[in-house]
Write a protein that binds this DNA or RNA. Structure first.
Lengths: 204, 204
DNA sequence: CTGGCAAGACGATCCGTCTCGTCTCGTTGC
DNA sequence: GCAACGAGACGAGACGGATCGTCTTGCCAG
């Protein structure tokens, strides 16, 4: 007896997603319950459980909906260094913003507790964003601004990893200067050996 | 009326920590409740609440106890590249191990939901480990194996960030080859320019 | 007239506090 | 020395409150 999506009330669906995001911004995460979402949305609890597995799935849908709104691709001015600097600055600013940070924190908690949800977060939310950065790096590689002997997925993680690390573990401030530092280090790792002959390190 | 630590029953304390770690390895995290810990440890719930703020604090203490057992310092063979390779391989192996990964996942969840606990995790669990790596990098800097114009804390994050990122978001496998890739990239970022004459890393 | 809807009752579970009666000790008076 | 005392931690579990996820009811739309 799976519910029939054709008969779904879109009004209720949107009200639920909006209510979830609102409550996420107003209250701490443990206080965000399915019952409160239902009450805020003016909806029966069953309407939530009929279409979602729990609050984690609701939040994921809300975030996906919000993320899909924008373009998603990384600007390309022809200068990888400048583009990455702008991108990472924006990313760090997002993590530093209490509002956005709260939603990220919430979905991360769910991710850690529910493997199935984690896969969906990865595929529907993260992959598109990370792939966009990867694409920008590929373009940079084609014009010789990025070494050709590195795994670009690892470079993407080299950029975002430290930021997640600092955000997650609160080991330091998330400032613009920090963002620039991350980019500088990453660029030092992937910029081709400019002088004379190539051949940097010993490789894998 | 804060409890008197002098009268504390160490037998109960250890039983609680052991029970917490055992349950953590056996069941999913939401199923790890204070009641179950108490039951498993053969202890009253109040004995837990008397000394800890909740299950998160219990897990933290258990992890700190386990971590404090070892030395904690990073070996120094004189070769930064080799030492980091061994260290990061071991770290990746830890994150790849389901048993250890489960405890890390649990404490991370608590960290995200409780700011106070997050600070304690950072100061009591993470800082010592990260500082040990930093110290090793400082030693490497003194012998010219690490650039002198980089923030070593950022270099530490450059090493661990990608690993956390991949573990947290499940974006790829945590293999030995991956560990080596992370080290290679980080080394490329922090190895001195080494102009003209030799002096590179080149592995052991 | 089928099926989603809002509303909310329901049993189960866990929370964190509280209340028992027991036990471990350090203190005290002899 | 050495019992009696008493403060406080202990095991056990009752308790009210909150949330979970399911189930029931009646309404409404297609």
């Amino acid at each position: 007896m799976p519910a029939d999506p054709a008969r779904r009330n879109d009004r209720a669906r949107r009200a639920i997603l909006v209510a979830a995001l609102e409550l996420l911004a107003e209250t701490s995460y443990p206080e965000l319950t399915v019952e409160r979402i239902a009450a805020r949305a003016g909806v029966g609890k069953q309407t939530i459980y009929r279409w979602w597995r729990g609050k984690g799935a609701v939040i994921l849908d809300a975030l996906v909906e919000a993320a899909t709104a924008g373009d998603g691709s990384v600007p390309d001015t022809g200068d990888v260094a400048a583009d990455l600097r702008a991108l990472i600055r924006a990313t760090v600013a997002e993590f530093a913003d209490p509002r956005l940070s709260a939603t990220t924190r919430a979905i991360t908690i769910e991710t850690l507790a529910d493997e199935t949800l984690a896969e969906q977060v990865r595929d529907r939310l993260l992959r598109p964003q990370l792939d966009a950065v990867r694409s920008r790096l590929e373009a940079g590689r084609r014009v010789g601004q990025v070494r050709s002997d590195v795994d670009l997925d690892q470079v993407v993680e080299l950029l975002f990893g430290p930021i997640y690390h600092r955000w997650l573990l609160r080991t330091g401030p998330l400032t613009e200067a920090y963002a620039d530092g991350v980019v500088d280090l990453a660029l030092a790792a992937v910029t081709p050996a400019a002088p004379a002959d190539g051949r940097l390190d010993g490789g894998r």
